[in-house]
Design a protein around this nucleic acid. Structure first.
Lengths: 81, 81
DNA sequence: TTGTGACTTAAAGTCCGTG
DNA sequence: TCACGGACTTTAAGTCACA
């Protein structure tokens, strides 16, 4: 086993999620409110997720992934892999 | 883009997680209680997660992944990819 | 358009037990 | 060893007024 090979310092999951959501949302030219509406969540809730303030559950993760058109795994995977 | 090509009906995330945890735990020869102790969660909780009854949070996901020696992404990825 | 504090309600997660 | 239940505590979900 190539020991611990290419591991990065590894941001927290929550931080990775926050960055990915914000980036993907911007890519799609959406406001927080538009994204929130699309996935049936509240604007301020999406905002707090993007700020890494929430320990989200799988169900919220699924809603966000669906609204952004990506997989849950993509949402949790750091950009520069 | 190979359009939607190899996509399976896609089990629920929670179901996939449940299966993966149980499989990995068995692979390691652990009881639910041993796994629970290792990750600092409760035995009854781990049991209910394995039964697919829980909407786990990212932090619990991280604890379980760490205790099983896999990544969070692996926990959420269906076996037969 | 977004951040934030304060808030209520729903569910995550614990702990006791039983078969 | 595990499934399951009931009672419980803690925290995420979800909303709002305001900057």
């Amino acid at each position: 086993m190539p020991p611990e090979k290419l591991r990065r310092p590894s941001k927290s999951l929550i931080g990775t999620l926050a960055e990915n959501i914000r980036r993907l949302r911007h890519d799609r030219g959406l406001s927080q409110e538009e994204l929130a509406d699309t996935c049936g969540l509240h604007r301020t809730y999406v905002g707090s997720v993007e700020r890494g303030e929430r320990n989200v559950t799988l169900s919220s993760l699924e809603l966000l992934a669906k609204a952004l058109g990506v997989s849950v795994v993509e949402l949790l995977t750091p950009e520069d892999e």
